[in-house]
Design a protein around this nucleic acid. Sequence first.
DNA 1: ACAGCCATGTAACTTGTTACATGATTTT
DNA 2: AAAATCATGTAACAAGTTACATGGCTGT
Lengths: 174, 174
Amino acid sequence: MSIRHGLLALLSPEPRYGYQLRTEFEASTGATWPLNIGQVYTTLSRMERDGLVSPGEEDDQGRVVYMITEAGRAEMERWFSTPVAQADRPRDELVIKLAMAVTAPGVDVGRVVQTQRTATMATLQELTRAKRSAAGGTAQRLVLDSKIFQAEAEQRWLDHCEAVLAANTEGAQS
Amino acid sequence: MSIRHGLLALLSPEPRYGYQLRTEFEASTGATWPLNIGQVYTTLSRMERDGLVSPGEEDDQGRVVYMITEAGRAEMERWFSTPVAQADRPRDELVIKLAMAVTAPGVDVGRVVQTQRTATMATLQELTRAKRSAAGGTAQRLVLDSKIFQAEAEQRWLDHCEAVLAANTEGAQS
DNA sequence: ACAGCCATGTAACTTGTTACATGATTTT
DNA sequence: AAAATCATGTAACAAGTTACATGGCTGT
């Protein structure tokens, strides 16, 4: 529900039209998660269906301007004041992959870990480079930082996995 | 595509029936991401449609046993040998929420951060408790560890956000 | 008898996502 | 004139998810 709420938040200060929303969404969250323009319109339609936004009159330039409704504002406030719970998060593909690699016989877990480590390292370097070039405002920088923190945590976890697996094979099977 | 591939991996050593797949999936990944049994069957149907699995004959006890196909095995190997890329990951709701909180006027970002920090702290304690009780095999333990690493990274990032925002309000706006 | 687990399945829905069609305006 | 950008929208699909229907078997 990230996009819905994101658009809702962008509409909260004042009405906007679809194309503008994409631009501003990407300006806030950065270029790493590009937002297809079609999706803006589908999401707006669905939010209209759910009573969160309503299309006002057209622009002076004929653009369709949406504005947030009462219900939409309430939903936005609920969103900001409710923490993201553990259960809300999507399943982590890497974690499932490793769990399966450990479980399934005949899979070289070490190789899976190594492959991922290389990729994550490359990601990390790219992110660091992006951070050095330092375009964008506070929001974009924080998004970048989040990705860096997450990639670093992933590296540490991969190290940890290797250590655990090494200890497992040398000693008894678990 | 985590569940598809997860089921595929579980089917790789030998054929299984649906109910069994749920049990084993949860045994590998832990109870934190419960898997609805209905989903196992829908996913199996779709995988059959895509030629990744095929229902063999019934069990001696009348259970519908699925087995992995050639194409399924190839897909599984591709999965294990391909790293999870940055672009593959879903949008992070918390990150978007904070980016929007920073961007939108009239939102108390500090409160959003605090609310999340409290929740994440509670999560972390719960995870640590779960780890101490230490049921489950290697896979489950690694999944738990991953969640702990991620929660810790999230706490660090929230701290970092606060620091950046404090520096921002005391000095000039960015 | 009844509760609860084992077991399979389907219908319906959500969000996310893309490919495509269409046209106006602006830049080169 | 052609290319690019601005702007709106639709059709179609994927994957995940749940609620429900159905029935057999097991333990109390």
